[in-house]
Design a protein around this nucleic acid. Structure first.
Length: 1014
RNA sequence: GCCUAGGUGGCGGAAUUGGUAGACGCGCUGGAUUCAAAAUCCAGUUUCUUCGGAAGUGCGGGUUCGAUUCCCGCCCUAGGUACCA
């Protein structure tokens, strides 16, 4: 009987679906295990063979855990809001919901063909109202919460109101905006409702703030940083300008420290943890304020928070170093003039185009030296101990103070420099470390300890987006400051004891401080502490912890996303109560922004909130008394994916995002699989939301995934043909020689395993190739091959459906695992699948030969038992170490050996099937039932390893000379070292090796190796 | 620059705490079977070799009886990143 994989696979896929074999129970005696894949965005292109790699691995693990007696939750769903569907809608006018539905159907069909053990009864889609009503609810919960630094967790906003009512801001230690004002309880009570709301909004975990975006008037849309190239839009090359927009932000910076600390409690790959650590970017030091020379100290300062320092909002927190220090307000951001790069950083884009800022205009009208007054420069330093080594200040060219302090003599030079800097993209500035540039402003700052005048420079090595956008330069202790000082001939003061700084800065943290007044003679640690103490005493500085992590912009000017459950009354946002959710995405005629630049929801006609009837009504009914306009932005792609793992626990619950019972049972994901590209996007936001939900007691754990594994990419093997430049002549690879040719991608489906091109198929592919002429070698056209990312545009995509069709899902699953270690990226080569496929055929034959699939009862031989048990041991170890490639080899070896032994014993063949079934579930189900079993193999227990079957009486010893194995010798294992030595030394090959020499030493490790030295 | 992972035959890749380098598969070569092909099976396949052997895991050192594995320095590739004060 033939191995008819198509028939077998269809049969069992149907069986699993009909019997709900993989449905997880929310109550069970068994221990729980939750295996999750990062859910896919259902794109129009469908799955290629790279996508299922992680799904196959997680499926093997899920099936293995079931065999091991666990109640396994292994769900799947779709991250179905997103840009491509919207883009397609704009182009074709089709509703994104329709195309999304079609794409999901394709995905589902493809997934089903591979035989995954998903519990499809828990499928979710982020774009369905049943799902996004909870996303909307979580948003309102964030709005109605603040971060209490005393409790170090988020709390309901009511507890903040209670504090205000009791004692005003006196006892409040919160994460909030920079420019909050202080008030007492009576003042609070006297505030109008509007004023109260305005105050509270500075504390809420999601808040509105004006942030700058990349606005492209020609496309009528906002662009991400990586959609902009040299100041022009990637699509179309239109100019992009910076525009301020009122947007929702998430106060993720409040969680910076806990997000950092949590990394120590989870088993995630180190590179992933490292990138989160870098992203959060904690540095400890001090904030120091320098007065600009000429400032009159008697005059009232603008504010202590210095809002005139552009870009000074850096998630900075005052550090409580001195127990006597009073109330500490943590600042998260000023929310006013964020340089664009900050806001976009969190969106996963890396590059930033530095737009010219308004500084140039400021310069024109800037005051002359006469009016120079009461300016301060706030800096953040990690080395407050080196403050006596400060010989100059450097401001970022974009720093707002530059235009105010520059002297008339230096104005022209500074202006030229700023303009030159503005032209350089941030990427340029980053890449070019060697060029040192800057300009002197003519102004001086006053050293707060010595009173000396310190020149103020600007330089583009200082970034406006980090810290305060200004540094106190200590050339003797910082190489960049050193280089800058050397270049411009600025004084370099040595404040290190016995260190030579003639060649470079001393960045060694063990050096002792010298020439530093009260800090002299101290080590770094002590000097730092003392310096901060003095700064705090004299009121110009304090200990601080600085985080790079910024609050995340949460608004998108798009259609295909979750609508905000928000309406506006007197310009203040109001949340719609939980019981009225979901607020359904309205119908619009066009998915483009409105003509006056409003987001696409501005096109909706029925988009107003009736507070009396609690429903969405026509815009014409807006009266701003009972009917109000609704929010026009939608939520970003990461909203729905930040909590979906909790939804699977109770996916069909209509009332809550998940029941308490379900959450308490499943708790968290035990194994999470996905690509490393989500390191700082999805995985950081999801951890943030989980911690927030934990703080409010909605979830039982504050980290949602115990263990995470990144699967590597499967790359494609592209095929190239070589066109003689300017002709339609294509030269076979081996004949190119010195001729000038252009490599052109050919579709990999036209090329066979021997790299020969089907020239007719190529000619028929596209009109431009119809007249192609080929220069052949040996009558064939040979293509070139190159490994690249698998993508449609490179014509190297291999589709899993066609593989399933031709070789079967079991072959695909085995082969994808066999390819190499899970985490590594590796090239796909369809030719290799024949190995996996012929293994399955061999497996089939082994059972066919065993009493026509029925097997034989009776005691297996010692050798048969040995094969089985060494396989059990290895496979179990491999799965638990996620080393799936090696267990496939192990199966091949086992089947080869059992085939050689002509094994037909049921006692061997049955457990072997259970071992293989997580990898190749269809064929094993079929053989399992042919052996006479009535239950699905999924219910079978994993075989138990019995070490006694592997005990050997003899060992084939490798005999080494000076560490090199020269020959082998089989010896009984019960010999003593001495007996072994006698036998080996008497052996003729030993004599030949030694050629008469006497060995210096003989090393014998019984059971392992014999090494003769000499 | 820094961080992380990696570098082993023609290819994908094995090698437990330092103990037989190249398992397993692809490809290739030869053979069996076949009218022929597919499929299947058998043998071979790191390099060099005077056929005795010898060398060999990116490069150069070191530790060790013994190193793909541990240590030091360097080179290259991939991913991440921040000129982060």
């Amino acid at each position: 009987m033939e191995y008819n994989f198509n028939e077998i696979e269809a049969k069992w896929q149907k069986y699993w679906a009909e019997n709900q074999t993989f449905k997880a129970e929310n109550t069970s005696e068994k221990p729980k295990f939750y295996v999750l894949d990062m859910f896919p965005y259902p794109s129009g292109a469908g799955l290629h063979v790279g996508h299922p790699l992680g799904y196959i691995a997680s499926d093997i693990f899920a099936r293995y855990k079931r065999h091991k007696g666990f109640n396994v939750l292994h769900p799947q769903g779709y991250d179905s809001f997103g840009l491509p569907a919207e883009q397609y809608a704009i182009q074709t006018g089709q509703h994104p919901a329709v195309t999304t539905e079609t794409n999901i159907a394709t995905y589902r069909k493809q997934l089903d063909k591979i035989g995954f053990s998903f519990d499809w009864s828990r499928e979710i889609r982020t774009s369905t109202p049943e799902y996004y009503k909870h996303t909307q609810w979580i948003f309102t919960e964030l709005f109605n919460a603040w971060y209490n630094k005393v409790a170090d967790k988020a709390e309901k906003i009511e507890t903040l109101i209670a504090l205000f009512e009791a004692s005003g801001t006196e006892n409040v230690n919160a994460v909030c905006d920079e420019e909050v004002s202080s008030f007492n309880a009576d003042e609070w009570k006297a505030f109008s409702e509007l004023k109260k709301q305005q105050v509270l909004s500075k504390y809420r975990l999601t808040y509105l703030s004006e942030t700058e975006v990349n606005w492209c008037p020609a496309l009528g849309t906002v662009l991400a940083n990586d959609e902009i190239i040299n100041g022009l839009s990637e699509r179309g090359g239109h100019p992009v300008e910076r525009k301020k927009m009122m947007q929702w932000s998430m106060r993720i910076a409040a969680y910076a420290q806990r997000l950092l600390d949590g990394l120590n409690t989870i088993d995630w790959p180190q590179p992933l943890k490292d990138s989160q650590t870098n992203w959060i970017g904690r540095s400890q030091g001090a904030s120091v304020t320098f007065k600009v020379e000429g400032s009159s100290s008697g005059v009232e300062q603008p504010t202590t928070n210095n809002p005139n320092l552009k870009g000074s909002s850096s998630g900075v927190e005052k550090q409580d170093l001195d127990s006597s220090s009073s109330k500490v307000i943590e600042r998260s951001r000023d929310g006013v003039e964020q340089p664009i790069t900050n806001n976009q950083n969190l969106e996963g884009s890396s590059s930033g185009v530095e737009q010219p800022t308004t500084n140039n205009q400021n310069l024109e009208g800037a005051s002359s030296g006469v009016e120079k007054q009461n300016f301060e420069i706030e800096v953040f330093t990690t080395r407050p101990d080196t403050i006596f080594g400060v010989t100059f200040m450097t401001l970022a060219p974009e720093h707002e103070l530059v235009s105010k302090i520059v002297t008339d003599e230096q104005r022209a030079e500074v202006e030229t420099y700023i303009q030159a800097t503005a032209k350089r993209s941030e990427r340029d500035r980053m890449a070019d470390v060697k060029t040192i540039s800057g300009a002197f402003t003519g102004a001086y700052a006053v050293h707060p300890f010595t009173g000396e005048n310190i020149p103020i420079w600007i330089g583009d090595y200082v970034l406006a987006s980090y810290g305060t956008g200004a540094v106190m330069a200590v050339p003797c202790g910082d190489q960049r400051d050193y280089d800058f000082a050397k270049h411009f001939g600025i004084e370099i003061k040595n404040i290190f004891e016995g260190v030579d700084i003639s060649e470079g800065a001393c960045e060694d943290k063990t050096a002792k401080i010298a020439n530093s007044d009260f800090l002299s003679g101290l080590n770094v640690k002590k000097a730092t502490k003392l310096a901060i103490y003095h700064m705090e005493q004299q009121g110009f500085g304090q200990g601080k912890i600085n985080y790079r992590l910024r609050d995340a912009v949460f608004s998108r000017q798009r259609y295909w996303g979750e609508p905000f459950p928000v309406y506006y009354k007197d310009g203040m946002p109001q949340m719609i109560a939980k019981e009225h959710l979901p607020i359904l995405l309205p119908e619009v005629e066009k998915y483009l922004p409105t003509e006056d630049g409003q987001p696409p929801l501005g096109n909706a006609e029925v988009w107003a909130w009736d507070t009396v009837n609690n429903k969405v009504v026509h815009n014409t009914e807006i009266n701003n008394e009972t009917v109000f306009p609704l929010e026009l932005n939608t939520m970003p792609g990461w909203a729905g994916s930040s909590w979906y793992f909790n939804r699977y626990m109770d996916a069909n619950n209509p009332n809550e995002f998940a029941s308490k019972e379900a959450l308490d049972y499943w708790k968290e994901v035990d194994l999470y699989l996905g690509g490393s590209e989500h390191a700082t996007g999805h995985l950081l936001y999801a951890r943030f939301w989980q911690k927030f939900l934990f703080d409010l007691n909605y979830v039982p754990v504050d980290e949602f995934a115990k263990k995470l594994i990144n699967q590597g990419m499967i790359t494609g093997t592209s095929a190239f043909v070589y066109r003689l430049e300017g002709t339609q002549t294509y030269i076979s690879k081996g004949l190119i020689g010195d001729q000038k040719v252009q490599p052109i991608h050919a579709d990999v489906s036209f090329v066979n395993a021997q790299n020969e091109l089907d020239t007719d198929a190529f000619k028929a592919w596209r009109e431009e190739y119809a007249n192609a002429e080929f220069v052949l070698e040996d009558g064939k056209y040979m293509v070139g091959r190159e490994v690249e990312k698998m993508s449609k545009s490179k014509y190297n995509v291999v589709n899993p459906d066609s593989i399933c069709e031709e070789f079967g899902a079991d072959s695909l699953r085995l082969f994808e695992m066999f390819l190499g270690p899970l985490e590594q990226s590796k090239p796909w080569n369809t030719a290799g699948i024949s190995g996996a496929h012929s293994f399955l055929k061999k497996l089939w034959r082994l059972y066919a030969n065993a009493n026509d699939f029925k097997g034989v009862e009776g005691e297996p031989s010692k050798d048969e038992l040995k094969v089985l048990h060494k396989t059990i041991k290895k496979v179990q170890e491999d799965i638990e170490n996620f080393s799936f490639n090696t267990s496939v080899s192990t199966f091949m070896i086992a089947v080869n050996e059992l085939g050689a032994l002509k094994c037909n014993k049921k006692e061997i063949l049955e457990p072997l099937l259970v071992l293989i079934s997580p990898y190749a579930p269809h064929i094993t189900e079929e053989l399992w039932s042919k052996l006479g079993n009535e239950q699905s193999i999924a219910t079978a227990a994993f075989p138990i390893f019995e070490p006694s079957h592997l005990v050997e009486s003899a060992k084939e010893y490798p005999i080494s000379f000076n560490g090199k194995m020269r020959f082998k010798l089989e010896l009984p294992l019960d010999l003593s070292a001495k007996e072994i030595e006698e036998i080996v030394m008497a052996h003729e090959k030993t004599e030949a090796q030694l050629q008469g020499r006497t060995p210096k030493k003989v090393i014998i490790v019984p059971g392992k190796i014999i090494n003769i030295v000499g």
